[in-house]
Each structure stands twice: as C-alpha cells, then as structure tokens.
C-alpha cells in the first residue's frame, strides 16, 4: 500500500538493483517460498528508529553504528516518516545537522503490512526501487523494517534447506547410472500376504530412483505398482508383478491366476468394491485401485477371465 502515488525518493545514492526473483519467471520452488513466508518472518525487528525531535546528527550516528542507510521516524509505534542517507548528505552540505529530523524526513512513506506474503514485499522492491520499507501491523503500528537484504537472506536460507531436502532424497552417491536399453524386474505376489504387501512396489520405486528417472514419473509408477500389488493380494489367487524399464517408458504388468473380474466396467468405476470389512480395516478396498492405476498411467489395459486377469499400465518418459 502507499500513502502517496509519487513518493519522494528516500533511498540513498540511486536505486538498488531489483531483486533477482521476478514473480512470474522464478522456479516454482522459489515462488512457493515467497508465498509461504510472511513479511513478519523475514523483516528486521525491532527496527532502529529516531523520534521527530532527534537531530539529524543522531540519525547519522545510528546509521553508521548499525550500518543501515535509512531509519523510520517513529514514536510509541506510530510511524511519522523516514530519514535516509540522502537527507544526511544534504544536511552535511547545508550545515543543518543539528536540525530536528522532522524538518527533513520524507513524510509520505510506502509501507508494507506484516502479514502480507513475502512475494508482495519482493515485488515492492521492483516497483518502487527503495532500499527498505517500514512494516506495520494490523493496528498500523511500526513493527519492523524490510530491506532487500532481508529478502535475499531469507530466500537463500530457505533454498539451502530445500537443497538439503532434495539431496537427502537422492539415492546414495553412486555415480549416475544410465538407463540400460531394457531392464525387467519380476515379483511374486501371494494372496492375502499383507505382511509383505508393498515390498515389490518399494523395490520398483528404488530401481527407478537408482536409474534417476524424473521423481514425478517415479511417483506415478510407484502408485500404479502399489495398487496392482494390493489388488492381487486382496482379490486374486496370486500372481506376479513385472516391470519393464526402457529409457522411453515404464511398463507395469500385473498378471494373476484368477478368479477373474466378473464385471470389468463396474470394477473400473470409482468407489465400486467387493472387499470385505477386514480388508477395509487395513485402509484398502475403497474401490479406487483400478481407477487410480488408470489415472496415473498413459496407457492402460485390462483383460480378465476366470483363469486370470492381466492389468497393464504404461508410463511414457518425458523426452
């Protein structure tokens, strides 16, 4: 918000460079940070202030001591203006260093509110090219000051944490493997074997991670594998889960030995289930298995007869 459409420049020695975080071009992870963080998380608080009656000499002393280039003029939390290095330079030239701050401060000040997202604050540095913005709370009391340095430091800290998180998720630091022309893995799945349920999918996920596929693709493939595995455990007489991996696609196939799906159209409807209460008590049998597999795959097929069911899901790798 601004109290003046043409605020006076209360920035010293020319405008600071814009922040390197344009809201429309930054990576999503950065935008996410800029919207998640509030200005109050990042601002310098409490701000160093002077009062209206303080001489410019004191303002200069405080700026030097705290290595800042501008100070809000405030009394009991109320903001009256801002005094900048420019004002001090003019006072030095003009010889009025002992005048009270109020005669020389900028009165129309662009301010931010503490519960605005940081993205908003960052955009102000581009929009107004000032070095700092006083921050007010909901009751219009001065609670802090936001400098471009505060923004950069906060973004850097958050990004480093993000990197640490990404690194922690990477497989062990073995040299990167390239996807061989074709890899196939096969797992036996036994009926009602809840003890081992999910192991095949876990192995498939790990193999795909080792081959450094895109994490989103791995996630989709793992979901399909898991639903296939659970379907066979819950409904079939047993079968096998096969994954064939090439650089271009991941093909998953669940093949069981019966008893078959009586009504395929019904089985593909979301929410249709034949699972019993015991299976539901394990968190499954909500009738989402086949629809989920279809949702995450690029190609899906299903054949079923009393002698067995084959579900095939193919996911294409983005070029």
């Amino acid at each position: 918000m601004t109290t003046d459409p043409h605020p006076p420049p209360h920035s010293p020695a020319g405008p600071p460079p814009p922040l390197p975080v344009p809201a429309d071009q930054s990576p999503l992870v950065l935008l996410d940070l800029l919207y998640k963080l509030k200005i109050r998380d990042v601002m310098t608080t409490p701000p160093i202030t002077v009062t209206r009656k303080d001489p410019l000499r004191l303002a200069r002393h405080l700026m030097r001591e705290h290595r800042v280039t501008g100070l809000p003029v405030a009394e009991n939390g109320r903001l009256y203006g801002i005094v900048s290095m420019d004002d001090i330079l003019q006072a030095l030239e003009g010889g009025w260093m002992d005048n009270p701050v109020e005669h020389h401060m900028a009165r129309n000040v662009v301010v931010l509110e503490d519960d605005m997202p940081l993205a908003f604050g960052a955009s102000y540095f581009d929009k107004y090219r000032f070095g700092r913005f006083p921050v007010l709370d909901r009751n219009r009391r001065l609670v802090g000051i936001l400098t471009s340095r505060d923004v950069s430091a906060a973004v850097l800290v958050e990004l480093l944490q993000e990197f640490a998180r990404l690194e922690a998720r990477l497989p062990n630091p073995t040299p990167p493997q390239t996807v061989p022309r074709q890899t196939a893995l096969q797992f036996a799945v036994a009926p009602l074997d809840f003890e081992r349920a999910g192991r095949a999918s876990h192995e498939i996920k790990r193999a795909l991670s080792d081959l450094q596929f895109d994490p989103r693709l791995i996630r989709r493939a793992a979901i399909a594998a898991y639903e296939m595995e659970m379907n066979m455990i819950i409904h079939s007489k047993g079968g096998r889960l096969t994954v064939r991996i090439t650089p271009r696609q991941i093909e998953l196939e669940a093949h069981d030995t019966g008893p078959g799906i009586p009504n395929i159209a019904q089985a593909l409807e979301e929410g249709f289930t034949t699972a019993n209460e015991w299976i539901k008590s394990l968190g499954f049998g909500a009738g989402m298995g086949l629809p989920n597999i279809r949702r995450v795959s690029d190609e899906f097929s299903l054949q079923s007869s009393p002698s067995g069911t084959t579900v095939r899901a193919t996911l294409f790798c983005p070029p």
């Binding site: 876990h202 594998a225 968190g283």
Partner: peptide, 16 residues
C-alpha cells in the same frame, strides 16, 4: 490418519 497399519508406512513410502 487413525489407521495403525504397516500399509500406512508403505503408502507413505510410495507417495514420498
């Protein structure tokens, strides 16, 4: 979740 089952951990693993 209030579901106390191994499958919760399996699911958590699958969806990262």
């Amino acid at each position: 979740t209030s579901l106390a089952s191994d499958q919760v951990i399996r699911t958590a693993d699958i969806v990262g």
